[in-house]
């Protein structure tokens, strides 16, 4: 295990780089996914169609192809940026489809009677949304949103494998290919790094779920 203990600083910087990748993708996918979910439930037919198309494409296309398209397709039409930005963008596009569906399932879980009752006692549209529908929708969207985001944390390793450089996956690759260290101990270190992220995120999600849980 010296391979891990002697290179702890490398692992640490890779861990931080992976976390920054995850953090940006988390913010981006939540924002974009919410917008697409807004499209999908909008009364405007063409926005709904756009949302449906978006979800169909990005939910059924492998993340790897999205990333290939970013890294090898976009430069062909003169869009060049770092792999780091390509990686985050690809992860955000892909995850946004799953975020959209999680939010939409949350909205759909609210009974129509809730909104009807709110309108019946004279609440305005804004009040109905902010006081009655969305708080309930948010609560039931939390568990699926959480598992979508944990899946994204794991998918960040795919972006790492693609070669953004400096993240946990790349640290493992450098230690084995450039320094010629044995794979098993080095990869164990990488695996532990990802497990720290996903298992603690899972525990955090369980706490949040307990806090927002509602009995229906």
């Amino acid at each position: 295990m010296e391979a891990v203990t002697e290179n702890l600083d490398l692992y640490w910087s890779g861990f931080l780089r992976s976390l920054s990748l995850i953090g940006w993708s988390l913010l981006g996918s939540l924002a974009l996914g919410t917008v697409i979910a807004g499209f999908r439930v909008s009364p405007i037919a063409s926005l709904r169609a756009f949302g449906t198309g978006w979800v169909t494409i990005f939910r059924n296309c492998p993340l790897t192809i999205v990333l290939f398209f970013m890294a090898f397709g976009l430069p062909e039409i003169g869009i060049n940026t770092s792999f780091y930005v390509f990686g985050i963008t690809g992860l955000v596009l892909y995850t946004s489809a799953f975020v959209c569906e999680a939010i939409r399932s949350g909205i759909n879980s609210v009974d129509t009677g809730q909104a009807e009752a709110a309108r019946a006692i004279g609440l305005t549209f804004t009040q109905t949304m902010s006081q009655v529908v969305l708080p309930q929708a948010f609560r039931s969207a939390v568990p699926p949103l959480g598992s979508v985001q944990i899946a994204m944390f794991k998918n960040s390793a795919v972006v790492g494998a693609f070669g953004i450089g400096g993240d946990l996956y790349s640290v493992g690759r450098n230690l084995t290919s450039a320094q010629g260290l044995a794979f098993i101990p080095v990869l164990t270190g990488v695996a532990i790094g990802y497990l720290i992220i996903t298992l603690s995120a899972g525990a955090l999600l369980a706490v949040i779920e307990r806090k927002v849980a509602i009995a229906r």
């Binding site: 794991k154 044995a182 098993i184 990869l187 695996a191 497990l195 996903t198």
Partner: peptide, 23 residues
Amino acid sequence: IELFRGLPVVITIVIVWRATIEL
């Protein structure tokens, strides 16, 4: 179950690949 659920599948594949050869 917790181990392989928490690991990114891409890492699992690489580990299977490299460990099989190394062992």
